[in-house]
Write a protein that binds this DNA or RNA. Structure first.
Length: 969
RNA sequence: GCCGGAGUGGUGGAAUGGCAGACACGGAGCACUCAAAAUGCUCUGCUCGAAAGGGCGUGCGGGUUCAAGUCCCGCCUUCGGCACCA
């Protein structure tokens, strides 16, 4: 029989934790009231501040959670629980991003319906999350695979499909450019003499066009449209991918399959229309600079000019984009991407001109032969090969010459694969004097180099100069840039070019439109049907959702991963009775025959708007009640900290925590959808995530044997060398090497939260994870160290409960002065740390206070109660239990967080540090309100100071009351 | 190559320009115990010293300052992101 039957052990923790989780569920403790909609409880909303705290949408993985996953969930939970104690109406919940590749791949292998495995995984994950004691509003746990959810995903798609971007329309905030219903565009087309009109390629006006022609015109405007364009095709996956899903070595982010560029008709999202707003509005949100930089980089906005170069023998000029129009006088040749559509019309018939430099011809007999050979070779090169070639420039002369508009010089036109068709105009003016790549090419092909910016002193002769400097060699009869700085020269030449009709200022972006269709089964079907003319139509709202049908075979047709010539075939295409339908779309044309779109949406679709559905998940009439959206997400009265003067707050989720791996993909797509919904008047907020915080990762030790293969980490033992005391590691008797890496199956280093619950309890796990270090840092997991968190909670428990009798042992006596001061210092520190996510330092302060209480003979009730309240956000179960045992019947959840008494924060006396020449030499207890003069005098009288200043004193720095620095002569 | 972050004890980490190393893990010792575990207490940056006390110390080299982990300049290492982006 144990002598301490009431000790806080893992078993007791489990009993307490399960009991409180049941009670929270029964009482609906974390149900957050809504102002409107099906769950309207306006009286509970009134007079309280709101707070919306969310985690990134998780995928319910079949392996369950490991200890790295809950880091962010615990952090948001602590934050949310803290704010409930400050009286706010806090909404915190979590759903499932349940469409996804793993379930589908499992289905392909086993024939098991992906819905079944996904739902099973969700059950496991739900259990694990509940066991953590997260204060989620469980009514709002949505899943993207529910038809009731994806009905609204499809509805949003039709909203985007039925919209166009009007760059001239004025927004409520005064800016220009917003989405408008496509019906308004059609109305303008139909208006005779209206401000907008359209003609098709044959010159026929709107009124005379047939349906197919009109659909083609509208596809040029719709924000969701189909287009035949080069897309990323991964034969090994059997699907196409967005640019964001392709790694920089030309492989799929998921599965690491080769990706090829193929021309296919696919669904696209016109995200480029929002490029400026997506870049500019980063100034309005509170996000890590790193993530803002990644988005800006991805959008890749650059200011420059478009300049047209006339070409000998054709009427069509070559248009280039340049960010350095000031260097135009140094343009000595041009380069087109091999795929550039003008190449064919440029290449002259017949043989090379007799004076052609032999290095330009690559040994081919004629320009046409050389170009054909080079294009073929370029098309066969993968992105990887193009990259590994690095700076070795290849290319070939087209035989054509263009004219430099500023000086009339005839300059040769090349094709080379260092110019990319996907950026700018796919053609450049080459300025070797001021560009490294052009310099390399010019050197290789013996082309002239003219410096048009004076290099700085000492700049090597044999290198291009890309820095700032005065323009040289840059004048014609009408304009001179000589002597001007780069930005003045740019402005001057652009003005001249524009006046002459040779060019105009322009802005270019790296961002491409978002490829939105996938040839997969496990995703949202498009709410789109095609009529017998092949014209697309949105399915009317009344027919949503378009439910995902069952199929005999879940796999898209996959191919040899290297088979670039293969074509995608979506699985839904095999369900003929689903694909071919007769519908009345309500457009007055009655029942007609249609074919359904057989592609499905990418995984990102469901995660682009889920945070909005949390706000009103039971609403059948709308994706979210506007009042609920305005309440939870609406703009704040004041902009975020650090935002520029005059900026309007965008609103959005008050705190969003998730991994930085979604910095570009999810966060950019969600912002885009949100802005469309904002423009169309469906949401008041202009950004989805007002404050985003990217948490670090938890890494765990992994071990490899002598062949470099990972071995099961849990079976590795630590061996201490008896002679040197150095530790090494062994697995089944063999020596292994240790490293720290991402937790997962591949490194065999998974630590499950289930093990932690069993050995320590959820509260201990929560405290340990929050105490490891700053939330934004990646930190190594150390199971051995978890015991520190458990000891803290155990001491806390013992301060309140007698381990032998189970009786409450706090005493109803007033606080002594030292305890009161320690308590209020802790309150002060902790209430600064919680709102700023400084949980590691908050825990350190709480441990200090708890240890101070441990040293008392008996713990005063006031100190114990306030400590328990402060611990509650971090370790809610033990706090609830102690709170109840201290005699309270209500949950601690809404207890008011203690407020520090400022009078208790000022000490009567403080330790003054006495420095001599900046080094600490003595200490002195002084009254905290001591005057500078009195302190100086006292310090100068100290024996050590007297001894050190025998030669005299140079200066004395007094920072009363904490520091005096005496500097002797 | 470009952009951004990080380098502090044996380990994770803490420090509005003002006592470097809070708190925790690990380690050492002591108490309790027949013993062990658990728990409690003490010590724990390196170094010289019996001690008192001293010297050194926040990746490296400079600088600013009475005073630098913190600010500035130049490097090194490392981790992310982007990358022939005109």
């Amino acid at each position: 029989m144990s002598e301490t039957p009431y000790r806080y052990t893992a078993d007791l923790a489990e009993t307490i934790e399960l009991a409180w989780q049941d009670r929270w569920e029964e009482e609906g403790t974390f149900h957050a009231p809504n102002p409107a909609g099906p769950w309207a409880e306006p009286d509970k909303v009134a007079g309280r501040e709101k707070l919306l705290v969310l985690d990134m949408f998780p995928y319910p993985s079949g392996a369950g959670l490991h200890v790295g996953h809950p880091l962010g969930y615990i952090a948001t939970d602590v934050f949310a629980r803290y704010h409930r104690m400050t009286g706010k109406n806090v909404l915190h919940c979590l759903g499932y991003d349940a469409f996804g590749l793993p379930a589908e791949q499992y289905a392909v292998q086993t024939g098991e319906h992906p819905r079944k495995t996904t739902e099973e995984n969700m059950v496991v994950m739900k259990r694990q999350l509940r066991r953590l004691g997260l204060g989620h509003d469980d009514r709002r746990t949505i899943a993207t695979i529910d038809p009731g959810y994806y009905k609204w995903t499809q509805w949003i798609f039709t909203q985007i499909y039925n919209s166009w971007y009007d760059p001239e329309a004025v927004r409520p905030d005064g800016g220009k450019g917003r989405a408008r219903p496509i019906s308004e565009l059609v109305a303008e087309f139909e208006k005779e003499g209206g401000s907008r009109w359209a003609v098709n390629s044959e010159g026929r006006p709107w009124a005379e066009m047939n349906d197919v022609e009109r659909a083609e015109i509208l596809d040029m405007f719709r924000l969701a449209y189909t287009s035949e364009a080069p897309v990323n095709w991964a034969p090994g996956l059997g699907t196409v991918l967005s640019n964001e899903e392709v790694t920089n070595d030309g492989r799929s982010e998921r599965g690491n399959y080769p990706v090829f560029k193929t021309n296919l008709r696919q669904w696209m999202m016109r995200i480029t229309a929002y490029a400026d707003r997506l870049a500019d509005d980063l100034d309005r949100v509170d996000w890590p600079d790193k993530v803002k930089a990644m988005q800006r980089n991805w959008i890749g906005r650059s200011q420059g000019a478009r300049v047209a170069f006339a070409v000998d023998g054709t009427d069509i000029p070559i248009e280039v984009f340049t960010t350095r129009p000031d260097t135009l006088f140094g343009a000595t040749f041009m380069v087109l991407a091999p795929e550039h559509p003008l190449v064919d019309s440029l290449v002259p018939q017949g043989d090379w001109a007799s004076d052609t430099n032999p290095t330009w011809t690559s040994g081919q007999a004629s320009p046409a032969a050389a170009v054909a050979a080079y294009r073929l070779a370029a098309s066969r090169k993968s992105d990887v090969e193009r990259q590994t070639e690095g700076k070795d420039k290849t290319g070939v002369f087209t035989g054509a010459f263009a004219t430099n508009p500023v000086n009339g010089q005839r300059i040769p036109v090349f094709i080379a694969d260092y110019v990319l068709m996907g950026y700018g105009t796919g053609a450049i003016m080459a300025v070797p004097g001021q560009d490294q790549r052009d310099w390399d090419f010019a050197t290789q092909f013996e082309l002239p180099i003219i410096r048009t910016v004076q290099p700085s002193e000492g700049h090597p002769e044999d290198e291009p100069f890309t820095g700032e400097g005065p323009a040289v060699n840059s004048a014609n009869a009408e304009v001179s840039l000589d002597g001007l700085g780069v930005s003045e020269a740019k402005a001057t030449i652009i003005e001249w070019l524009a006046g002459k009709g040779f060019g105009q200022p322009t802005v270019n972006y790296k961002l491409r439109d978002w490829l939105f269709s996938r040839q997969r089964y496990w995703g949202e079907p498009f709410p789109i049907v095609f009529d017998e003319d092949g014209v697309s139509h949105a399915v009317p709202d009344s027919m949503l959702p378009v439910e995902l049908p069952d199929v005999p075979d879940y796999s898209p047709k996959t191919f040899e991963p290297e088979d670039a010539s293969s074509q995608p075939e979506p699985p839904l295409g095999r369900v003929e009775e689903w694909v071919n339908v007769e519908l009345d779309l309500g457009d007055g044309r009655g029942l007609r025959k249609f074919r359904r779109e057989t592609n499905t949406m990418p995984n990102w679709a469901g995660s682009c708007w889920y945070y909005l559905r949390y706000l009103d998940p039971a609403n059948d009439a709308a994706f979210v009640d506007p009042e609920n959206e305005a309440y939870w997400m609406g703009p704040h009265a004041t902009p975020v900290i650090g935002a520029a003067e005059g900026v309007v707050d965008p609103g959005g989720v008050d705190l969003y925590i998730g991994g930085v791996e979604h910095a570009v993909l999810h966060l950019l797509y969600a912002r885009f959808w949100h802005k469309v919904l904002h423009d169309l008047g469906h949401v008041t907020s202009d950004e989805p995530f007002r404050k985003y915080f990217s948490q670090g990762y938890i890494q765990a030790p992994a071990y490899r044997d002598d062949r470099g293969q990972p071995v099961e980490a849990s079976e590795v033992v630590e061996v201490a060398d008896p002679a040197t005391g150095e530790t090494s590691y062994a697995w089944q008797g063999q020596p292994v090497t240790r490293e720290f890496g991402k937790i997962g199956k591949s490194l065999k280093n998974v630590v499950s939260p289930d093990e932690m619950f069993e050995q320590y309890g959820a509260d201990t796990l929560r405290v340990y994870e929050m105490s490891m270090g700053p939330l934004e840092l990646s930190k190594p997991w150390e199971t051995r160290a978890v015991v520190g968190a458990q000891r803290f909670l155990q001491r806390l428990w013992r301060n309140v409960i007698d381990e032998e009798t189970g009786a409450v042992r706090v005493v109803d006596v007033p606080l002594d002065d030292a305890t009161a001061r320690a308590l209020h210092k802790t309150i002060d520190a902790v209430s600064k740390d919680f709102p700023t996510l400084g949980f590691n330092t908050a825990i350190a302060r709480l441990i200090e206070l708890n240890n101070a209480l441990t040293k008392l003979d008996a713990v005063p009730r006031e100190a114990a109660e306030k400590l328990v309240v402060m611990v509650a956000p971090l370790a809610p179960h033990i706090a609830e239990e102690l709170w109840q045992r201290l005699g309270h019947s209500e949950s601690i959840t809404f207890e008011t967080f203690p407020v520090a008494d400022p009078a208790m924060l000022v000490e009567d006396t403080v330790t003054c540090v006495v420095q001599i020449k900046g080094k600490v030499r003595d200490r002195l207890e002084v009254p905290s309100d001591i005057s500078e003069d009195a302190l100086r005098e006292q310090v100068l009288g100290l024996p050590k100071v007297v001894a050190a200043t025998e030669a005299g004193i140079r200066t004395v720095i007094v920072r009363a009351p904490r520091l005096v620095n005496v500097v002797p002569l």
